[in-house]
């Protein structure tokens, strides 16, 4: 007869597991993936595939030969890192660079610290920022979106809306004059603009985000705080001088803000634990993003702002504890 088991309570467990959550995230990224494949064609597919495969390969090699620990490459986290890394680079980035980025993301960003859950910085962003600084030209040459194309070379490149605004403003051109050059808002939401592989379509990303919220993979706190604070902060400047500062709606739907707020900032390991902590974290990300966008050297600041706030997470965890039961005595 089989032996009875003795263990501590509880004797039930949810059907949730790390890998189910991770594959849930991957699933929620599918709409954004499809949009990017539509606009950037075969190149986007290749970049995404390369990033995913090389991330998994690097994790396998490091776990098997360097750490000699248990293998976790199929828990889905490496796939997410790969997809998010690919989403953060231009579609026409040479594939060799994608591999280097993956190596940095997994090797430096994740495994150095002990693997999943122990990394202080979002691995995909570590990879992206590494490449941004090391290969600035390739990383800022964005292809123009076209309906599905199979061309890998000689693609038409052009500036992203954010670069257009930044350059224009620095040359002293007013926003109203720049407006005709920019895509319409509906186009921005659909994703018909220059940019990194997966960041362009706000609609698809929001769809994925809603799925994650529905499945309770993420909570609303970080995205809402991030997007809200970015919108409010950008809005204040816009009200001050609409000729120099572009309106908040434009900020929300351009660049990597949606992707960052829904997928990068909500990364479990690198975001705070308590709800108030999450809100502070989100607000910090939002403020820094707008500051970098408006006053920094780079047109886009989502990646940097999230990484900077990642560094504050341990402090936030210490400072913002959840509300304990029985702390405030109410006798009503």
């Amino acid at each position: 007869m089989r032996l009875l088991t003795v263990s501590g309570s509880p004797h039930l467990h949810t059907d949730q597991s790390v890998s189910k959550i991770m594959y849930g995230v991957v699933f929620s990224l599918i709409p954004a993936m499809l949009v990017s494949f539509y606009f950037f064609g075969l190149a986007a597919i290749l970049v995404t595939l390369t990033a995913v495969v090389s991330c998994m390969a690097f994790e396998f090699v490091i776990q098997k030969y360097l750490i000699k620990g248990p293998l976790t490459i199929f828990d889905g986290s490496a796939i997410i890192t790969g997809v998010l890394l690919a989403f953060n680079v231009p579609a026409n980035l040479p594939l060799g660079l994608v591999v280097i980025g993956s190596a940095v993301a997994i090797g430096m960003g994740k495994m150095t610290f002990g693997g999943l859950g122990k990394n202080p910085f979002n691995p995909a962003l570590v990879g992206r920022v590494f490449m941004m600084i090391s290969f600035p030209v390739q990383m800022t040459t964005y292809p123009e979106p076209t309906a599905f194309s199979t061309r890998l070379t000689d693609v038409v490149t052009g500036p992203t809306p954010l670069t257009l605004v930044k350059d224009g403003v620095s040359r002293g051109v007013g926003i109203s004059e720049l407006m005709p050059q920019l895509p319409e808002y509906t186009q921005l939401m659909m994703g018909n603009m220059g940019g990194s592989v997966g960041e362009v379509s706000a609609i698809a990303l929001i769809l994925g985000g809603l799925y994650m919220l529905f499945r309770r993979i993420i909570s609303w706190h970080i995205p809402v705080a991030f997007l809200g604070s970015a919108a409010i902060f950008a809005g204040i400047f816009w009200l001050v001088d609409p000729q120099v500062y572009v309106d908040p709606v434009f900020h929300l739907f351009t660049g990597g803000l949606m992707l960052g707020a829904l997928y990068m900032a909500t990364d479990y390991a690198t975001s705070p634990m308590s709800r108030w902590g999450m809100i502070i974290f989100g607000v910090g990300c939002g403020l820094l993003t707008i500051i970098i966008r408006l006053f920094g050297a780079y047109p886009e600041g989502v990646a940097f702002s999230i990484l900077i706030m990642n560094a504050f997470v341990p402090l936030i965890n210490r400072a913002f504890k959840p509300k304990r039961f029985g702390e405030e005595v109410k006798n009503g």
Partner: peptide
């Protein structure tokens, strides 16, 4: 048993508001 991924689910479900 895997690494803690810091998903904060334990924190959200704790009825006593502990970590």
């Amino acid at each position: 048993e895997l690494n803690c991924v810091r998903c904060a689910k334990c924190l959200t479900v704790c009825p006593m508001g502990l970590e």
